[in-house]
Design a protein around this nucleic acid. Structure first.
Lengths: 341, 341
DNA sequence: TCTGGCACTCGGCGAGGGGGAGTGCCAGGG
DNA sequence: CCCTGGCACTCCCCCTCGCCGAGTGCCAGA
């Protein structure tokens, strides 16, 4: 096992490298941190850390930089999440509370996160499957044309046009609407299929086909929209580290446009709390030199299961404590805003 | 006025520079285009073109590159919009026709445009003010809580929560819903304020406050959402020209995130047809080395006024004929899709 | 008006050469 | 046994220099 001091050396290397963006040498380390030992001793420690794979030298006789494994150890054992200042928290709350609808909440969250962390921000729209139904509305646009509107407790709205196999009376529609709502309002989307399975049977034969059509569109919507949507912002921050990343930025941008990739990344976190995936831990080629810091939000405080995820994407060389703090704080406030609305 | 041959030289310079991304010299020009004259003559023509400000040399004794003014002349007089191939058109139609809702249409359009032009694509959501009302829905979520849902003929849906000053009966709500719809369905959003101005008066005094609240939220929604939304894609294409644009990409990304800037750019085109803004013609600092090619879509075929804009942002050194053709074609097909739904 | 020739100008590129930061190793001391 | 100071060594970075070549402007001649 690594001695206490060697861990301290690793922490110092990570901090300095994140700050200066340059490989850090033994002399500079002893000058900037009072480790109480000489550069020579630090050199020995560094050699040991390198043997263990926590740090590496870009070229012989240059300073050391942390490896992915080194960052992992740093994040797991050496770093505390840095809480935000009171001023920052007030700013977050003010900024988010001005939102008028769900799109606005998500949009503001993205901008906020990007600005706070100076990194690329990603916010997933509240998921349908983990949301509950607030209301189902059916609007008759023509005798055989109905619009289905689905409203979630997180304020998300989905709508679909339905062409009915046969004309449908206003009364029947009202009936269907009432029965549908009485069954599903307040329930989770995942439970809806089970809850409406036998609904068509209770209608007169003439209407049964149409009811069936409506129900199938409803279920289809649930399935389709399980494939979630994302909002991304702050891509300009990628250029902050362009002096040594002129070529890396392209695959990152490409990965960001592939929403599937991002959704998988965000979705991987199962346990609550901030998740950090570092460099090669992201099994996507374009993201091997970036880290993803993400967390669930909108857990409603007690049920525990998050309604969606948000996070940031940045170079592996990032300020983990600060970023984790910002991500966690923003998630908390967004959860509050959604719960209120 | 410039002679025919000098225009031809300018055209050749633009084409070569767009193709090679390198300053083009007199010798290379005569080799790649059969102008029928010697390099020396071309040099004289180039000197003249430079005097007029159509081309410039990056450094003394290097080749020439077109200036913004040169591109402008090229676009206005020398280039024809390049129509797409049949295969491309079929691909567009196939790709767009699979969309399930408005978000999907816009999302697919962005991806399509980005891929087709290999540039950054921008698509504006159909504007509310220029759309017509398909339906207004009022949902009672609690005695004094109502949700307003606004549905446009382009499939866009906006919703707002309303806290009423007093409880509101189901009957009154149904009444309001019916009257509201009978007045505004099929009308343009811009006309709505006038159409509902006196609606509150016809209600009993008890309900008047609530009706007024609902109406004011409705009008507010119209105003707020006049500030339109955008979807952006293909930012990875910015890195295609990173070998000489490592620093320029940042302000471009920043400008793209400032939706206000983009909306103003798109909004500037008044006359129908493809609009091209070249370099410094965009009065925004970050976009002085980019061009914007945009066009309205969803004009409904005959009314003429477009429902929104779409376009691409790329380096001034872009393939204008091809880009203009792609933008125009995509706009046409999106218009069709929206008209059908 | 066009053409070929000629001298000139620079930018790009590769070679060469300090300077400096950092390392590994070793012998000596607490 | 661990830490320390010293020392020789290794490369990377950066600056300079000089060459090469593409491209230009000008001029005299067809």
């Amino acid at each position: 096992m690594l001695s206490e001091r060697r861990l301290e050396v690793l922490r110092a290397i990570v901090q300095d490298y994140v700050g200066t963006e340059e490989p850090v040498g033994s002399k500079a380390l002893t000058e900037r941190h009072h480790l109480g030992v000489s550069p020579a001793t630090v050199r020995n420690d560094m050699a040991a850390l390198e043997d263990e794979g926590f740090i590496a030298q870009p070229h012989t006789s240059a300073g050391r930089i942390p490896t992915d494994k080194g960052y992992r150890l740093f994040v797991d054992k050496l770093a505390d999440v840095k809480p935000l200042s009171g001023a920052e928290r007030r700013a977050i709350q003010n900024f988010l509370s001005g939102a008028v609808d769900l799109d606005d909440v998500v949009g503001r969250t993205v901008r906020l996160l990007a600005q706070l962390t100076r990194q690329v921000a990603v916010v997933q729209y509240p998921s349908l499957t983990r949301s509950t139904v607030r209301h189902v509305e059916l609007l008759q646009l023509a005798p055989a044309r109905v619009m289905l509107v689905l409203i979630t407790d997180t304020g998300r709205v989905e709508q679909r046009m339905i062409d009915c196999p046969a004309p449908f009376s206003e009364d029947s529609l009202a009936d269907l609407r009432a029965r549908l709502n009485s069954r599903v309002v307040g329930r989770r989307f995942g439970d809806v299929p089970r809850l409406v399975a036998d609904l068509a049977e209770s209608f007169p034969a003439d209407d049964r086909g149409t009811v069936q059509t409506v129900l199938s569109v409803l279920l289809e919507t649930l399935v389709e929209e399980t494939e979630e949507r994302l909002m991304i912002g702050g891509t300009a921050n990628l250029t902050r580290f362009d002096h040594d990343f002129p070529l890396t930025i392209r695959p990152v941008l490409e990965a960001l446009e592939e929403q599937v990739v991002l959704l998988r990344l965000l979705g991987e976190a199962k346990e609550p709390g901030v998740m950090v995936r570092i460099g090669h831990e992201n099994d996507h080629e374009g993201l091997t030199s970036t880290s993803v810091v993400s967390v669930g939000y909108g857990s409603g405080g007690d049920t525990g299961e998050a309604v969606a995820k948000l996070g940031v994407v940045g170079p592996t060389r990032m300020d983990y404590p600060g970023t984790m703090g910002a991500v966690r704080a923003v998630a908390r406030y967004v959860g509050q805003i959604l719960a209120e609305s």
